[in-house]
Amino acid sequence: MKTNLKFTAMIAFMFATVVGLAKEPKLSLLTEGQSKSLIVELDSENSKTLLKIIDENQNIIFSEKISASTYTKKFDLNELENGSYYIRLDDSLRTLIYPISVENKEVKILKRIENTKPVFRKKGSMLFLNLLNLDGTDVKIKVLDGNNRTLFSEVIENESIVTKAFNFETAHEDRYTVVVKDGENTYYENIVVN
């Protein structure tokens, strides 16, 4: 019965993730004669997306919070110096990074990098964690109390779907932080017990 329930939960998580990722941002490049333009089109179910353009020194050139489900913006790149830049789109489920190269009058999108984020769901005194870990990297999970003491620690190896449930029903009044480290990315979720 437990195996059946766990299998059903994993299938539901995968389905929800696939549906959530079905409408993804589109990035198209337009060059007309001597002008360099980049058009970002966003068509997403997520209503909160953060768009950034970052240079190779990690300086933010442009930043905008997008709350509409459809978004289109044209960027004039004529004033950019030659070099490497990044278009970064962050929403609640993932981070998309598009490295671009600007050389003379030519702009190229080099590749697409996608990092899925863990999904946290609170229900009463329970906190549920789901993470799609397709590259199979080790996932480190910790629970810290308000004084930064580690109450729980686990490393999950070679799992493509990481699911975990935390029960705070008998926990003392405090602010707890669940830390999930997936490769180079670290995510935090806070829960307050009153």
Rank of each mutant, 00 (worst) to 15 (best):
V192N: 07
V162F: 14
K164Q: 14
N133R: 13
N46W: 06
I161F: 15
E184N: 09
V179A: 12
S101P: 00
S160T: 15
G124F: 06
Q34H: 15
S67H: 09
L50H: 03
L89Y: 09
G136E: 15
V178N: 10
F7C: 12
I53A: 01
Y86P: 00
K108N: 07
K36M: 06
L27I: 07
E103H: 03
T177C: 08
H172I: 13
T116Y: 05
N59V: 04
K117T: 01
Q34D: 10
V178Q: 08
I66R: 08
D91M: 01
F75P: 08
E173R: 07
K23I: 10
L42Q: 08
G33M: 10
R149K: 13
V143Y: 05
F166T: 11
V18K: 04
D43F: 10
I161A: 06
S160L: 11
T95I: 08
D43R: 02
L77M: 14
T49V: 13
I161S: 12
T137D: 09
K23H: 11
E56N: 01
M14L: 13
T186D: 04
K23D: 05
F120Q: 07
N194I: 03
N185Y: 02
L129F: 10
L151A: 14
E157F: 11
E64A: 05
L27Y: 07
T8H: 12
D138I: 13
S63H: 03
I54P: 00
T116S: 07
P99A: 13
L110F: 01
N57Q: 08
A16G: 15
V179W: 10
M10Q: 15
D174E: 09
N4E: 15
Y176A: 03
R94L: 08
A12R: 04
S63W: 00
E41C: 12
P99L: 09
I97A: 07
R88D: 01
N190R: 14
R88S: 10
L93K: 03
I97M: 03
I97Y: 05
F152N: 07
D91Y: 13
N82C: 05
N167S: 14
S28Q: 15
L29M: 13
I53R: 01
L51E: 01
I66E: 07
V139M: 13
M1V: 07
N147D: 15
N46C: 13
S84W: 00
N167R: 05
I54N: 00
E79S: 12
A68Q: 11
T31C: 07
K73P: 01
T177D: 02
S153T: 09
E106D: 08
A68Y: 02
E24N: 04
L129K: 05
N147S: 03
D91E: 06
V18A: 11
I60A: 02
F7D: 09
E173S: 11
A68I: 02
I11R: 05
Y188D: 04
K108Y: 04
A165T: 05
E45D: 08
M14Q: 12
R88P: 01
M1W: 02
E45W: 09
I97H: 00
E64Y: 01
K122Y: 06
V19R: 06
E169M: 09
M10S: 10
E159F: 14
N4F: 15
T95W: 02
E154F: 04
N59Y: 00
V139A: 06
V107G: 03
T163H: 01
T3V: 04
S37N: 09
N82D: 06
S37C: 10
L51R: 00
